[in-house]
């Protein structure tokens, strides 16, 4: 068996999702090759070469890959695919974007969002917002898989693989990058944070999310939101934790003013410790919380900030 894993990065830094995906890959077994495709990203390739369990890093440094456009990145991966039995990527918005293209072009059904490896062809994945876990087996010679990284620990950075540059340029000419607006934050990313504090509809407006900021700063936490809060326009969608937003599993998850709809629980119920603060004692969030506080959040949050 031989695995090709497509790294998640922003051309300057390797994302932690890649380290977690390598850990998932090592459970499948076989040689692991990491592909770093981007522009001016040799530093990322060097970093990837240090991941434990990686035997080779392929570096495709070309303007065609700078913004991970699915048409170009997909074509590159398909071009490399013949040497590998498994093609893997983290189930980030980048992985979700280009991997199904790879699968379709290889005439393979993709297995999305795996949370465990049961064998080289058998995996588990959540369905129905995590209300059921399916064990699935692929009968294809080649497996195309995305990995739910919150379900796996990070691989260590003690290795030293060789980095090989590949000259490939796949420019499909179908799409072009126009602009991006990335959220600037000093805080850790939601999917990488060990503490997450999220607000829901109970926050009443976007301004009130500032009540979470002080606590987040003290705990080194990322700030998230429920779909209801995003829907209501309080905060941007990149803060959404849930079935169709980000999936997180931090050491501590604090849900504030969140009722606990199944769509939200799907994104956070694998957190190690869950705290719920809600004034409605009947809110379903209390059924998954390790510690529940029935209180008015506008009183509880300032008190919490001063007492930690």
């Amino acid at each position: 068996m031989s695995i090709l894993l497509v790294a998640e990065h922003d051309n300057s830094e390797l994302k932690v999702d890649t380290l977690k995906a390598v850990n998932a890959a090592s459970k499948i077994g076989g040689d692991i090759t990491v592909l770093v495709a981007g522009l001016n990203c040799s530093g990322v390739a060097d970093e990837a070469s240090k991941i434990d369990g990686v035997s080779k890093v392929l570096l495709a440094d070309n303007a065609a890959y700078e913004h991970s456009l699915a048409e170009n990145l997909g074509a590159l991966v398909v071009d490399l695919a013949s040497d590998y039995s498994h093609i893997l990527a983290p189930a980030t918005t980048t992985g979700k974007n280009f991997m199904p293209r790879v699968a379709a072009l290889l005439d393979v059904e993709q297995i999305s969002d795996i949370i465990s490896v049961e064998g080289s062809d058998t995996f588990t994945r959540p369905i129905y917002a995590g209300n059921a876990i399916a064990t699935v087996q692929s009968e294809y010679a080649k497996k195309v898989i995305t990995i739910r990284t919150s379900a796996f620990d990070k691989a260590a950075l003690t290795g030293s693989a060789e980095v090989v540059s590949i000259g490939s340029e796949q420019n499909a000419g179908l799409s072009s990058f126009v602009s991006q607006e990335l959220t600037e934050s000093e805080r850790p990313e939601l999917t990488a944070a060990s503490v997450v504090i999220s607000g829901g509809r109970g926050m009443q407006n976007g301004e009130n999310f500032k009540l979470l900021d002080g606590i987040a700063d003290k705990l080194g936490a990322a700030v998230g939101a429920s779909r209801a809060a995003v829907d209501a326009g309080f905060v941007p969608n990149d803060m959404q934790v849930g079935q169709t937003g980000k999936i997180v599993a931090p050491d501590l998850y604090i849900a504030v003013g969140i009722s606990g709809a199944i769509q939200h629980l799907a994104g956070m119920k694998d957190s190690k410790v869950i705290v719920a603060i809600n004034k409605d004692a009947e809110a379903p969030i209390f059924q998954v919380a390790d510690y529940g506080l029935v209180a008015d959040l506008f009183e509880a949050l300032p008190e919490l900030e001063t007492s930690i």
């Binding site: 980048t94 179908l174 799409s175 072009s176 990058f177 126009v178 991006q180 607006e181």
Partner: peptide, 14 residues
């Protein structure tokens, strides 16, 4: 305009 992990990305498609 696409919702991506870090924010928003805008692409132009033929």
């Amino acid at each position: 305009t696409r919702e991506v992990d870090g924010g928003l990305q805008t692409v132009s498609l033929s």
